[in-house]
Design a protein around this nucleic acid. Structure first.
Lengths: 183, 183
DNA sequence: GTCTATACACCGATAGAC
DNA sequence: GTCTATCGGTGTATAGAC
């Protein structure tokens, strides 16, 4: 089991339990690694594990969300690709978003800046796509924020209602809502 | 300081730190009550405090959100009243929602059913308003879910970006988005 | 790298005096 | 009701053998 697999398993725990709810015992169980092994791989302990998870998420995000958005294809197509990747990453909405989770408690103090930058990068890139098709900067920014709002809100709703439809519907409607003609 | 004031202060801690991140030390500090006093008022400890907070939130919610929605006035007016109360309750988006927080970790196991019911009650009531003005049941339900999604997502964005505008804009547009003619 | 053992702080919770 | 004192358990983190 390589480091990527370990980090993915740790990420799963953080996403289920939040930062404070995640204990080394849970991580040990999820990875099959003993405490000492965990400290061998992450000398700075829990905080470094969370940082590794955030870095992994950031990398995934760059490759599967940001890159497709600035890649080739029509704007609608690029946004649809983003949606497909989101749906996979968040398991149709069943898995929480680290960025939302880490805005709470101690983790907010530790990772606020990083979370802020990652969300802003997403919004900026989305807005850039909208400006490509002639939407003024200010409205593009608002629509991009709305899209991220809808994704984040849908994640909350899915977990609370035990139904994935709200997330699937939200993702499916992203291209329409983002690209509809300005009123 | 009466019980309501105590519960409100405890709620503030839970909303900032989440369930697992909230410790009796933090609660003691926030309320000015010692550990023993806290256990006098809440014999079942932390879990009972969280239950009291949820019950308080449910009561506030019934009076300030659900009641206005089924009260008098135009649908647009009632939704606007809801928005004003939301904005107050969530401090323009700066304070997290307990229902979103309690979908994580141990608190999800403890409170899932309650959270589920409270969110569903909100959605049901919103949908009822939309059906009043002739929107078909299925679409009314979807729009109601969308509204809750937008509120929850905006709360995440405000905390992550340190800007209240996304929440304020979201709340302001709720009446328009909910009541716009069906396409 | 992984193991066992352990240090030390803090957790939630309780007991008993007042 | 609130205080002090304290319990058992678990948290994170470390040391040292292998």
């Amino acid at each position: 089991m390589d480091r990527t697999e370990v980090v993915q398993r740790i990420a799963k725990v953080f996403r289920q339990c939040g930062y404070e709810g995640t204990t080394l015992s849970l991580i040990s169980e999820a990875t099959g690694l003993g405490r000492a092994s965990l400290y061998h791989h992450f000398p700075n302990g829990k905080q470094e594990m969370a940082e590794a998870v955030l870095e992994y998420a950031g990398q995934w995000f760059g490759e599967n969300i940001l890159a497709p958005l600035q890649g080739e294809g029509t704007p609608a197509g690029r946004i649809a690709v983003m949606g497909a990747h989101l749906s996979q990453f968040y398991d149709c909405g069943r898995s929480a978003c680290l960025l939302a989770i880490f805005t709470l408690g101690e983790s907010d103090l530790l990772f606020h800046k990083r979370v802020n930058q990652m969300l802003n990068a997403w919004i900026d890139r989305l807005a850039a796509v909208l400006m490509e098709i002639g939407i003024p900067a200010k409205q593009a920014r608002q629509r991009a924020e709305d899209a991220v709002i809808q994704v984040q809100g849908a994640l909350v709703l899915v977990r609370a209602l035990d139904r994935t439809e709200p997330f699937e519907r939200t993702v499916q409607q992203l291209p329409i809502r983002l690209l509809e003609p300005i009123a």
